[in-house]
Amino acid sequence: LQAFIKTLTGKTFTVEMEPSDTIENLKAKIQDKEGIPPDQQRLIFAGKQLEDGRTLSDYNIQKESTLHLVL
C-alpha cells in the first residue's frame, strides 16, 4: 500500500509498504528516502504516536492514509 508522510514544514512524500510492516520498518524507509535517522522520527496517525514494535494494521493504516512526521 502507498501512504503519505507529511512533515511539519508541509512537505509530503509517499512510501510503499505492507500492512504487516512494523513502524520500525516504516521509519527505515523514511530514512532511505529522506535521510532522517529513525531515532529522530515521531510518527503520528489519528492523533496517536506510533510505537516501533506495532504494525500498520495494528493502527488500521490503509492505503493513501496520511501520517504526520514530527522531528
Rank of each mutant, 00 (worst) to 15 (best):
K6M: 12
Q49S: 10
D32C: 07
A46G: 11
M17H: 03
P19E: 10
E24W: 14
I23P: 01
K27R: 05
Y59R: 01
F4L: 11
E16W: 14
A3Y: 15
Q62F: 11
L50M: 10
K33L: 14
L56I: 12
S57Q: 12
I5E: 02
L43R: 00
L67V: 12
A28W: 12
Q31A: 14
T9I: 06
L8V: 13
K33P: 01
G35F: 04
I30V: 05
Q31N: 09
V15S: 00
F13M: 04
P19V: 10
T9V: 07
L56V: 13
G35D: 05
N60Y: 07
E64L: 12
V70R: 09
Q40Y: 10
V15T: 02
T9K: 12
L1H: 06
L69F: 06
G10L: 03
T22A: 03
F4I: 14
M17K: 00
G10P: 02
A28I: 13
N60G: 14
E18W: 13
K33E: 07
T12R: 07
T55S: 10
K11C: 08
D52T: 05
H68Y: 15
Q62N: 14
G47L: 03
I30Y: 01
K29M: 08
E34T: 15
E51T: 05
M17D: 00
Y59N: 02
N25W: 10
I44L: 11
P19R: 09
E24D: 07
D52Q: 05
D52A: 07
Q40F: 09
T7G: 05
R42E: 07
T22S: 08
D39P: 06
D32S: 11
L43F: 05
I5L: 03
F45V: 04
I44N: 05
R54K: 14
I61G: 04
G53I: 06
I61P: 05
E18C: 11
L71S: 07
K29S: 04
I23T: 04
V70H: 10
K6A: 07
K29T: 05
L67T: 02
Q41M: 13
N25A: 14
D58Y: 15
K63G: 15
I36K: 02
K63M: 12
L67P: 03
S57H: 09
D32H: 11
K48G: 06
E18K: 13
D39G: 11
E16M: 13
L71C: 07
E18F: 14
L1M: 11
V15C: 03
L8F: 13
A28V: 11
T9Y: 14
F4Q: 10
L50P: 02
K27L: 02
Q62T: 15
A3N: 03
T66D: 04
Y59H: 03
L67M: 09
P37M: 05
L43G: 00
T22K: 08
Q2T: 15
K11Q: 08
K29A: 07
S20P: 03
H68T: 13
T55W: 05
T12P: 03
L50F: 02
N25D: 12
T12G: 06
R54P: 03
T22H: 03
K6S: 10
E64I: 07
T7H: 06
L71A: 07
I5T: 01
A3R: 02
H68S: 07
T55I: 08
L43K: 01
D52V: 05
P38A: 15
K29L: 09
V70K: 06
D21T: 05
Q40S: 09
L67F: 07
I36E: 01
T55P: 07
P19I: 11
Q49I: 15
K63E: 12
P38F: 14
T14A: 10
E24T: 08
S20C: 07
L1D: 04
T14V: 13
T14S: 10
I23L: 05
T12W: 10
L56S: 01
K48R: 11
S57G: 11
V70C: 08
T66P: 07
G47D: 05
A3Q: 04
D58H: 10
L71Q: 07
Q49K: 08
V70S: 08
Q62I: 12
E64P: 04
Q40L: 11
E34N: 09
K63L: 08
T9D: 13
G35I: 02
A46F: 09
N60F: 07
T12I: 13
N25C: 10
I5C: 05
D58C: 03
K29W: 06
T22Q: 03
D58F: 14
F45C: 03
A3I: 15
K29P: 01
T14R: 08
N60I: 09
D39A: 13
I36R: 02
Q40V: 10
T22E: 02
K63P: 15
Q62G: 14
L69W: 01
P19W: 14
Q41E: 00
I23E: 01
F13A: 01
Q49E: 15
I61V: 10
K6D: 04
Q31W: 15
T14D: 04
D39S: 13
E64M: 10
T22P: 04
I5N: 02
L50C: 02
A3T: 10
E16F: 13
E24G: 14
A46C: 09
Y59K: 01
E34D: 04
V15N: 00
R42K: 12
D58L: 02
E64H: 14
L56D: 00
G53M: 08
L8T: 14
R42L: 13
I30G: 00
L50R: 00
V70I: 13
P19C: 06
E16R: 07
I44Q: 06
Q2M: 14
Q62L: 12
E16P: 09
K63V: 09
R54N: 10
L26H: 01
Y59L: 06
V70P: 00
Q2Y: 13
P37K: 06
E24Q: 12
D21R: 02
I5M: 02
L1S: 06
I61T: 06
K29N: 03
F45A: 03
I36W: 14
A46Q: 15
Q2P: 06
K29V: 07
G47Q: 04
K29Y: 08
M17G: 03
T12E: 08
D32E: 15
L8Y: 13
L71D: 06
K27G: 01
D39H: 13
G35H: 06
D58R: 02
I44F: 15
G35Q: 04
K6W: 07
K33T: 09
T9H: 12
R54D: 07
S65R: 07
G47R: 03
D32F: 10
T14Y: 11
E16Y: 13
Y59A: 03
Q41V: 07
E34S: 15
L1P: 03
E64Y: 14
T55G: 03
K27T: 01
I5P: 01
K27E: 00
N25V: 13
S57P: 03
T12C: 10
S20T: 12
F45L: 08
D21Y: 05
S65M: 12
Q41D: 00
I61D: 04
F13S: 01
R54L: 11
E34I: 15
P38D: 03
Q62Y: 11
S65T: 10
K11F: 11
R54C: 08
T9A: 12
E16C: 11
A28D: 06
E51F: 05
I36A: 03
A46M: 14
I44K: 05
D58E: 11
R54W: 10
G47Y: 04
T9C: 13
P37F: 04
N60K: 08
A3S: 03
L1V: 12
P38N: 06
R54E: 06
K29R: 10
L71G: 06
A46E: 15
G53W: 14
T14L: 11
S57M: 12
L8N: 14
Q40A: 09
T14C: 08
T22M: 05
V15Y: 03
T55Q: 08
A46R: 14
S20V: 05
P19F: 12
I23C: 01
F13Q: 00
T9F: 12
G47V: 02
L69C: 01
F13C: 02
K6G: 03
K27D: 00
T7K: 04
A3W: 10
P19M: 12
F4T: 13
L8D: 13
K63C: 06
I44M: 11
L69P: 00
A28Y: 13
E34V: 15
Q40P: 01
S57I: 08
D21Q: 07
L1W: 11
N60V: 07
P38I: 15
T7A: 05
P38H: 11
L50V: 05
I5R: 00
E18V: 11
E34R: 08
V70D: 06
Q31G: 08
P19G: 08
T22V: 04
Y59S: 02
V70T: 10
P37N: 06
I30C: 01
T22N: 04
Q62D: 13
G10I: 03
E18G: 10
K6I: 15
S20F: 11
Q2F: 13
G10Y: 03
R54G: 06
T14N: 05
D39C: 11
E51P: 02
K11D: 07
L56A: 04
E24H: 11
L43D: 00
D52M: 05
E51R: 06
A46T: 04
F4R: 13
F13N: 00
E51D: 08
Q40R: 12
Q49W: 13
M17F: 15
V70M: 12
F4P: 02
L69N: 00
K27W: 02
G35S: 04
G53Q: 10
L69M: 07
I23F: 02
P37V: 05
I30A: 00
P19K: 07
K6C: 11
T9S: 13
L56T: 03
L26R: 01
L67Y: 03
Q31L: 10
Q40M: 11
H68V: 14
A46L: 12
Q2V: 15
K11L: 09
T14H: 07
L50G: 01
R42S: 09
D58W: 12
I23V: 13
E34G: 06
Q31C: 09
L71Y: 11
K11G: 06
T14W: 11
Q40E: 10
K33M: 14
K33D: 03
L43Y: 04
L26Q: 00
K29I: 09
K48F: 09
E64D: 15
E18T: 11
A46H: 14
I30D: 00
L8H: 14
L50H: 01
